[in-house]
């Protein structure tokens, strides 16, 4: 037995090395090198993404169980809840109303913000405009203000009896003050903060895309007799379409996540903005105020899935758009 194996073994290893040799020559580094390179990224991805996500999924299947009056040590226990938290989320009218509010908010915010951003980018890019650098900075500056601070400043301007907007309207036209926290108008009040803060960033993205377009195209258009307006509408706009679509995707994702602006509004005046005005505010309310981290986790997972589906859908549609545009 031993002789048989000893005969066979060198042969096997010999053939093994012979087979491996050509690859070694072309690819001299050991095979684990690529894994070493991606290890850091994978570790980080697992540590800051997969593990918290898994923990959130776990929490979403738990609940508290109170025994007796619920006072004193050991009165509150964490028990498995199955999918009952998800059932609560799907049956919770308040949660879906907050989703609906975020959608309405997005329908107001995104067209206005991207429209203005495109307009400003085209204006700044046109050759006749003076004070370009100043204009760029002035439009971009609100983006540099933290949203919470920007929201508080706007909130002060909305406060009845304090509002410079209302006192100006009153002084000029004798108008009664606008209630910026009214049930309907508050959507505009909050969206206004989003427009104010977001236009500059999106303008920068579009402006950068415009600057990278080849100048020869304009020259050709001018030779053909196109004026600045026609160049903007027929040449520049179609050519920066991928950038416009990208800003639209980012804005859509940001819309469902809106938190800072309405949260600050809520703190300033309770009137129009309730504690569960947007989906993330509902999560915050349930997790931190109501101290029900399990329900909050289930809501977070539902929001994450909705965002994933939404982003995938937008990407799918826009991919077709981008490539379709290039093919033509």
């Amino acid at each position: 037995m031993t002789t048989v194996t000893s005969v066979h073994e060198p042969a096997a290893s010999l053939s093994g090395t012979r087979r491996a040799r050509p690859r070694d020559r072309w690819n001299p580094a050991p095979r684990r090198t690529p894994y070493t390179f991606i290890a850091a990224a994978v570790l980080l991805f697992v540590a800051v993404y997969v593990v918290p996500l898994g923990y959130t999924v776990y929490l979403s299947t738990q609940k508290t169980q109170v025994s007796g009056r619920g006072l004193g040590p050991g009165a509150r226990q964490q028990v498995s809840a199955g999918f009952s938290n998800y059932a609560t989320v799907f049956g919770d009218g308040e949660f879906w109303q907050s989703v609906l509010r975020a959608v309405i908010y997005g329908c107001i915010l995104i067209p206005i913000m991207l429209g203005l951003a495109t307009l400003f980018a085209l204006i700044l890019d046109s050759q006749r405009v003076r004070f370009q650098r100043f204009g760029r900075l002035a439009i971009f500056l609100p983006y540099a203000v933290p949203t919470l601070i920007g929201s508080m400043i706007w909130g002060m301007m909305y406060l009845p009896g304090f509002s410079p907007i209302n006192s100006t309207l009153h002084a000029l036209f004798g108008m009664q003050g606008i209630n910026f926290f009214g049930q309907r108008i508050v959507f505009l009040s909050v969206a206004n903060i989003g427009v104010w803060g977001g236009t500059g960033f999106n303008m920068m993205v579009l402006y950068t895309a415009l600057r990278s377009l080849p100048q020869e195209v304009y020259e050709a258009a001018r030779l053909d007799g196109a004026n600045e307006r026609k160049i903007a509408l027929r040449i520049k706009l179609p050519m920066i379409r991928p950038a416009v679509i990208m800003t639209a995707i980012f804005s859509t994702i940001a819309t469902l996540q809106v938190f800072n602006e309405p949260y600050a509004m809520h703190q300033i005046a309770y009137g129009g903005v309730s504690t569960s005005w947007t989906p993330l505010m509902t999560v915050y309310q349930d997790t931190y105020t109501a101290n029900n981290v399990y329900l909050g986790a289930a809501e977070s997972i539902v929001i994450a899935v909705m965002m994933f589906v939404l982003s995938a859908a937008v990407l799918r549609i826009t991919n077709r758009q981008i490539f379709g545009g290039e093919a033509r």
Partner: peptide, 8 residues
């Protein structure tokens, strides 16, 4: 809320 947390 109290019922959801398992209080009687």
């Amino acid at each position: 809320d109290m019922k959801a947390n398992g209080f009687t």
